[in-house]
Design a protein around this nucleic acid. Sequence first.
DNA 1: TCGCTTTGATTGTGT
DNA 2: ATCAAAGCGA
Length: 783
Amino acid sequence: MHLNEKQELAKNTINWPLLIIAWAWSWKTATLTARVEHMIKEVWINPAEILCVTFTNKAAKEMRERIWKRLWIHIDNNIYRQKWNLPLIGTFHSIWVYLLKDVLNKYDLSELWINLKKDFIIYDEDDKLKLLKWIITVDLQLDEKQFPARQIAYYISEAKNSWLAAKDYVWAVDSFIKEKVSQVYNIYEKKMSENNALDFDDILFKTLQILKNHTILDYYQEKYKYIMVDEYQDTNMVQYQIIKLLASKYRNLAVVGDDWQSIYSWRWADMRNIINFKRDYSEAVVVKLEQNYRSTKCIIDAANCVVKNNKTALEKTLWTENESWEKIIFIDAPDDKLEASIIAKIIEEKMNKNVISSEWIWVDKSVEETNYALNNSIENSKEQISPFQSEWQISKYSDNLILYRTNWQSRQIEEALLSKWIPYKVVWWLKFYDRKEVKDIIWYLKAIFNPNDVIGFKRIINTPSRKIGSRTLEVLDIYKNNFSLPYFQILENVEEIDDLNNWAKSAVKWFFNLMLNFREVAKRTEVADLIQHIVDKLDYKTYLIDEFWTEEAEWKMDNIKELINLATNYNWLWPTESLSQFLEEVALISDLDSVENDADYVTLMTIHTSKWLEQKRVFIAWVEESIFPHIRSLESEKELEEERRLMYVAMTRAKKELYISRAIERFYFGNYVRNIVSRFIKEIPKELIEDYKMEISNFWLWSSFWINLKDSETILWWQWFSIPKIKVKEFNDVSTFSLWDRVNHHKFGNWIITSLSGELAEIAFSEKWIVKMNIKIAPIKKI
DNA sequence: TCGCTTTGATTGTGT
DNA sequence: ATCAAAGCGA
């Protein structure tokens, strides 16, 4: 295995703090893997003392596989690690859930004032909002329009990620809304512990609270002496503190990251964590991996040029020895349907061309050989690549990656791919675990596992319909609060509730007995069989057929079969443990791991999701102002810079060919909309990018204009699409604003400009609330 | 009191 | 265009 000098340094720096700045595709994963291998095989460190934290499940999985391979271990990826004396590798959330369970088995937390019992469950965003809504409207009797659950959730999340507990929130109250947030937050925390549930923020927050205990901290410091954190630029304050505590004893902390690829600040990630690493660990060795082994020079130059427009970027340049040169192609499509069709057409045409004349692909032989050699030496664990399927040849559907800013954008592209019979796969969490039928079953599992959970019961008590309506639920809730008993006990004693009629009573009783049966079965049955039992007993199939048409019902049943299939992975565990493990995976893993490894398909995903991978040919679609950069980011310079870093990430996913597309006019939100070309495209130097040449003849065949034109025959096509359907957003004239002007913001009301330099202004909306804005684009008016 | 129809928001990224 | 919540009839 050949590492370059810098990678070698990183590998050999052990027992010492280490900061690795790794630019896109500088083979950082290979370096990290080599480091772990070195630690275990040559330094003889106990593998179980190594803790590796990654950012996504995909990255964790890949790293686990690579390390297993190096250690000659062939085991199932899902299996818990301790049992084999292996490094603990996972995402922040999955690792801390694991540790929390471990702690709950060993220590009594009531001394720490932490209300958490062993069989806790994890709430997803949806559950969280449901609970908050309930608190806002029922407990506090507030108007939901005035205090939307989403907004309250945002404040609570912010608090939890800045180390602010509910009881301390009063100190942060500086506005009317925060006063209400404080109330909601306190009730929310109370209900969460009653339900024995954690939300995503809690997983980190509670861990940090627990680690403040010296006995427990000491135990884990001894247990994990070697800590590595990948994607360090995307850690937030709580994660930072957890790592800091764990590493404080032995200071064997290695962090890897790149501030240019910081794209998760909306999840409270703070790139100062990486920039200030030297402040906490002044003795740290710093290694910079600047050489990119993947992309062509053109792509790298262009990506560098785009990201250089960020004022806060540190001075650095990504470079490559790879001199091959293929320009970035810009697709300036007339409309959205055409944009998608052109992408599909390019994939189709190039596929055919490659199949017909494979010699033709070999033009770049010198580069080819260099890369092939490099690739083989450094990543020798990858299976042998035949010369014809090597690094530079694009001959499969799976060499194509289509990226976009937001999830729902996949639809149109999917349609275009379907019409050309191109196989594809959308990587999207909603695709599986968020399906209604899957969620229903998972909610039954959660309710079986944790009988304290109210939200869970409410979700399933009337699915399939048992004629239990909102009135009945309300009564049950009143009784629950009056007697302060767990929900399950209220259900058990439903006959004693006078406010319910007999009909409702028997329905509830029936449901209670059903759940009792499920809980009994769960004690002696593994999850997979348990799910089957639930589906049979509920007669879920009949329910689906009643609710949807046959075709859709069958499709949904297939999803349940797939869920059962996934659950069989946990059959080797004890019944109750298999349930607990399965629920943990479902809560923390956002999308299905591809089962069909050999299948050949085009991949579609958001840019955020694409961070961990690379592809030979990449398409970035919908690159237009207000889509990418996203409309909600336009008002703040900071968020715009994050969008630009996102563009950098998107561009550097490409190894060989990069296509960027936009449509002059598109139909969305039930309207025709025209956006101007994204500023990011303009930031790419002209000599690095060229236009895709469209043939008018094809364009007629594909276009939706053709259909539209029938309705308005008198207009020629070029006239038709030169009519703007909506008004393009107007900019403010900066020169009309001056210091101390009073301005009106459509959301925040009337306030004052307190500082002004160029387009940037500070506007005071209240004494404490001063916001930086770009007055050219902010929705403000002078008054 | 439940279930169906209409209305109104919604779509920013994901552990 | 799509989905959840509010409004209305049985």
